[in-house]
């Protein structure tokens, strides 16, 4: 099957983000990485291809700065990479629109399955995959833990609040991926070298016939009006004792003083 994986470059999510004086997020010193959920999506697509044949294309929307993210995907299972050149500030539906448009042009053949991470670690909107499906009129299965081909379509294991569901859809379809019980593969020196030489297809807004009224800051239905740091707690007493018993005794006294035990 022909598989497409939509990826987003995000700031390293192990780093806390501060505020600039103008109220924008302070991101310039944080390493950009591929969104963790998208790496799970890529790994699942790569395994699917290895088991059942086909090819894996990664797609992102962004400026030149997004190229390293695509390269890193080419080193861990993607066969082809494609970038829609646009850096306008979009809300989730704006991005979904651009991805949906680009998905029609990103491959030599139409895609059978479009993979998206279930959410991004920066904006955490968890909307884009489902909205890509809505815009393309395709079936969607969200929060997928595993999938396999079935009767020309796919069968997926969907994570739920208290277990899982088995969901089936015909192809083409969209799936959004949560963390499965395995980790994405690491690149090797050889795969990194190879990725460096692989071509990346650049698409323009004109190539994907993007309607300017459907993306970008003017079209955004959700607009940020303020950004702030959450209230910070003050730290209290730190107990460092050689004897664990003494540390526990002191902690218990403090807790008892607050009538907590």
């Amino acid at each position: 099957m022909e598989l497409l994986v939509c990826i987003k470059q995000v700031p390293d999510d192990s780093v806390s983000v501060g505020l600039n004086a103008d109220g924008t997020p302070k991101l310039d010193e944080i390493t950009p990485v591929v969104n963790a959920f998208d790496t799970y999506a890529l790994e699942m697509a790569a395994r699917f291809k290895e088991a059942h044949g086909g090819s894996v294309t990664v797609l992102t929307v962004g400026g030149e700065g997004a190229v390293p993210a695509l390269r890193s995907c080419l080193a861990v299972g993607a066969d082809r990479a494609c970038r829609l050149a646009d850096e306008s500030a979009c809300d989730p539906q704006g991005i979904a629109y651009l991805l949906a448009q680009a998905s029609k042009k990103a491959g030599e053949q139409p895609f059978d399955v479009i993979f998206c991470g279930s959410e991004s670690t920066d904006a955490s909107s968890a909307q884009v995959g489902a909205q890509v499906a809505e815009l393309l009129g395709l079936p969607v299965i969200t929060n997928v833990l595993a999938l396999e081909p079935k009767d020309g379509g796919i069968s997926a294991k969907q994570e739920t609040e208290d277990g899982y569901r088995v969901v089936e859809a015909s192809c083409p379809c969209v799936v959004t991926i949560v963390k499965p019980d395995y980790e994405p593969r690491y690149p090797s020196i050889k795969s990194k070298m190879a990725a460096r030489k692989m071509p990346i297809t650049d698409l323009s807004l004109a190539d994907v016939e993007a309607d300017a009224g459907k993306f970008g800051p003017e079209a955004a239905k959700v607009r940020r009006v303020a950004l702030s740091a959450p209230p910070q707690r003050q730290s209290g007493v730190k107990i460092q004792e050689k004897e664990a018993a003494e540390a526990v005794r002191r902690a218990m006294e403090l807790m008892a003083g607050q009538k907590l035990i």
Binding site: P11, D13, S16, V17, G18, L19, P25, T121, D122, A123, S124, K221, V222, R223, R224, V225, A226, L227, S228, A229, P230
Partner: peptide, 22 residues
């Protein structure tokens, strides 16, 4: 009337206006 939500893993909070019908 804006909605407050967490971004960047909880390190910041944004207020968003999603308009009528959100």
């Amino acid at each position: 009337g804006s909605w407050v939500r967490s971004v960047y893993g909880g390190s910041l909070q944004e207020s968003v206006d999603a308009g009528v019908g959100a």
